[in-house]
Amino acid sequence: MAKAKGDIGGPAHDAVEIGVAIAMVVFGLIVIIGSVQVGIGWGSDGPRAGFLPFYMGLFIVGSSLVNLWNAFREADYKTPFAEWGQLYQVLMVVVPTAIYVAIIPYTGIYLASIVLIAVFMRWIGGYGWKMVAALSVSVPLVCFVVFERWFLVPLPKGPIEEWLGF
């Protein structure tokens, strides 16, 4: 979203700010389009389905344009949003979680959770394999007992659970 400017060690705060404002404008436009599709008029019996969302969309676009203008006006591109090192830390969570979220529909939540906890503890925490194995298996197992057995809340399951007969 943002490019590094100048000699600071990370994306400029104002660049991110501008990016967010633009994204908001786009979001507002989508809301407006969707509202127009269902009717934004004021029928004989009160507002139609798109009436309120339409004005919310307008508000989002309008206010975001103000924010955008403010950001441009005050932009100095000097203050960093975050240092690259910090962003790397953040991505260390976001990327595994994104993969986790993406594979849940295929592997089920239990296997994915085991992998997530193991990767996290090993990669970020640097724990020994024994500890990693113990926790990464026991947490999903406890979840299984609590959710599926006690509270009868079915969670996403994959081929392994199918094979085990759950």
Partner: peptide, 11 residues
């Protein structure tokens, strides 16, 4: 420690 509790929270 955070590196234990964080993935559990995520799950």
């Amino acid at each position: 420690p955070f590196s234990i509790i964080a993935p559990i929270i995520l799950v």
